[in-house]
Design a binder for these strands. Structure first.
Lengths: 412, 412
DNA sequence: CACTATTTGTTCAACGATTGAATTATTTGC
DNA sequence: GCAAATAATTCAATCGTTGAACAAATAGTG
């Protein structure tokens, strides 16, 4: 691709070490087997001397550990493998959703080291109260992390709504939130994490964005481009391009639920007509399947739908087929526009993927010009429930791996 | 690419200078007034000593020139302004389209220093012959560039079709091209440009992509995200995200013409139904306006349409309104998905923009959730005809500005 | 068991680029 | 004519990488 990297900033002496710290640590994170210093030297193009010096810094900063050497055939001094440290920095992930609060801690290697979920209907709960509960859960998570030798270096909060760059939740319709300034509301509470240079104390982001990041994290590392669709009451999408989340000019990308699929069709609460949400949103599917509307909790409605489809219920099957077709029309447009090779069905769509994938694939095959040469994969998400919380925590450790100098420069 | 087979990412001593060369040159290119060395030092964060050393390299390499100092109030030794050199490297832009061949030369500052257009119907012409004509035109361009003290450092070719990463034109339906290996066909001809490390000899890309790059180049520099729509017989789009063209996983992004706007609507030659092209493509508009189909040359058909609309012809106005509405449905989807703040109407749409913009804006207002907070601008392209050729040439000089070390490392 | 080949990791002088302070250059204002 | 002010260069010091030499540790071989 075109290397049009915008002038980021001055490159001074120290930047050199910063960049090589990130380079080496990134290789260790991306490797499937613990690499030796010599492996890293050949992989990065640096000399072994430099790699040794860099690794020494990483070891001292508790970012990597030496592991048992991978057995190797042939002569020679045995290598000492390097792995991401299982004690050291970790990320705190928070999630507020319609019917649960979730908190988790993810370590450098991407392992979930702590997880708490409180199920409760959050719609009648005021934002202040919801955040207070979350802070309490986060405090326990921090203590548990400390017990395991982990230091929380930053936090990210997933919210099912539109969030601007400053953490202001503009609109979270299904929560009933409107212009909630999350950072200001948290100012009264003690800090959730340590302060680490270069790592923001709290990032607030859209649930769909963070779930997509979680999916990115669970894949083999490297530049990936895919669309992650979270099918909840609303339909949101996280767009990962070349291994990075694309947030849009204002941070409001991914509103796939309001892609027009029948421009003169059903009116939508967004003011438009024929939005995807009206045909493939959870309420639409449930209604089309003839399920009682009383089954409000999203989980049970989805589960019931999957049960019925499994049992061969004609109404459920037809509802899922129609929803999948509408979804496929939208996805085909996105693939035509962005030339993605993978579409991930997450959130409430994941358990319904066996019935949604075929019609989606059919629409892609019929509508995408380039599908013949570069096939498009449609698959369910690998992360299960609370994917956004895991993705949120993962986004923190991802930042540390991408810029370890900040962590190393901290006082401790 | 570059002869140094060092794995990408290794940051060695020399990289430091490479990065700072790019940093300083980028600032000079982005400045609206010729900056002094001292200005650059404060802007980049480097010391004046370093900036002086870097600028010395740039001056020696004919990338920048010293200009008359900008008059400044107050005491002190007058600054010496730095501007991009008007002699030195330049980019060669080539374009093959349905009814013309175009060649142009763009210098570092983005000025078009040479331009040739040969009008002819290229559909009955074999690819080999078309390329041969282009090579002849390029030869003259090179000579003219040399007369002006310019050295062609690389070339880019715009084609109205799908191009893969290796320069193979998979499909150019309106030219009748199918699997045309452009680099192989050019192998027999003498090289179009000098060989410069780090600058590919010839890039073949989609016309819409390169036209979008041209538009990016003509804007105030900096990270921009916009959608550039080229309305020709087909409808293509170039997607610029954060100042870089997004090409997609396989390089086939931007097929906006096949976004479904009426999923059960008119059949499209792509195999799908209700594609945008069937409602907002040039042929569709012309047919809806009741114009004789015989007016084949695209330019005249568009011009005639604009004339009729100007004169208040009801049929033309209705046709344009309907096309704009269809376009608006597609654009609303894209904006919902990507959160772009600007949509540029280029190609055949540019002269029709006065009539297309209102319905497009109306659809955006009605369908985009976030439009209330972040307004979306819809405007005609600033570059006129042969925008793709200019964009192609501009993409070459852009690469040199982004990575000047390659140019400086050349033999000369 | 000694010896060689082989691979890993470290040590160290040299080198290259940036830095910061001092110095030179050039103009305005008094 | 002189001081103040700003621009640009010079130069020793510093920091990180380099390349080669060296030490460490193991398998294979006789």
């Amino acid at each position: 691709m075109s290397p049009t990297n915008a002038p980021a900033g001055a490159v001074r002496q120290g930047s050199l070490r910063e960049l090589n710290l990130a380079l080496v640590l990134g290789r260790i994170a991306a490797a499937d087997r613990p690499p030796s210093r010599a492996d890293l030297a050949t992989a990065t193009g640096l000399t072994r001397a430099t790699v040794s010096a860099v690794v020494e810094d990483l070891l001292a900063g508790q970012l990597v550990d030496e592991a048992d050497p991978a057995p190797r055939a042939g002569a020679g001094r045995p290598a000492r493998g390097l792995v991401l440290a299982d004690q050291g920095p970790a990320g705190l992930g928070l999630e507020i959703n319609v019917d649960y609060l979730a908190v988790c801690v993810v370590d450098l290697a991407g392992q979930v080291r702590h997880r708490t979920v409180h199920r409760a209907d959050l719609r009648p709960v005021a934002p202040t109260e919801a955040l207070a509960r979350l802070v309490a859960m986060a405090g326990q998570a921090r203590a548990d992390a400390a017990r395991q030798g982990l230091t929380l270096a930053g936090a990210a909060l997933a919210v099912p709504g539109l969030v601007d760059g400053a953490g202001l939740v503009r609109l979270a319709p299904n929560l009933g939130w409107h212009d909630v300034p999350v950072p200001a509301l948290l100012a009264g509470h003690p800090p959730l994490t340590e302060q680490v240079p270069g790592v923001p104390a709290l990032v607030v982001d859209n649930e769909a964005n963070l779930a997509a990041l979680g999916e990115l994290h669970s894949r083999p590392p490297g530049p990936a481009s895919f669309l992650h669709i979270s099918g909840e009451v609303g339909i949101g999408a996280g767009i990962v391009l070349n291994g990075a989340l694309f947030r849009g000019v204002r941070g409001w990308s991914g509103e796939i639920g309001h892609l027009p699929v029948h421009p003169q069709g059903r009116p939508c609460r967004c003011g438009g007509q024929g939005c995807l949400e009206q045909y493939a949103g959870q309420e639409a599917i449930v209604a089309a399947a003839g399920l009682a509307r009383a089954e409000l909790p999203a989980d049970t409605a989805t589960a019931r739908l999957a049960e019925l489809a499994e049992a061969g219920d004609a109404g459920a099957l037809r509802a899922l087929h129609d929803a999948g077709t509408a979804l496929g029309v939208a996805v085909a447009g996105v693939v035509n526009l962005l030339d993605l090779d993978t579409v991930v069905l997450g959130g409430g769509y994941a358990p319904l993927a066996p019935w949604l994938c075929p019609p989606v694939l059919a629409e892609i095959a019929g509508r995408v010009l380039t599908a013949a040469w570069s096939p498009v994969t449609v698959r369910p998400a690998t992360l299960g429930a609370e994917a956004a919380a895991v993705g949120a925590a993962g986004s923190v450790v991802r930042q540390i791996v991408a810029r370890p100098a900040g962590w190393l420069a901290r006082s401790g």
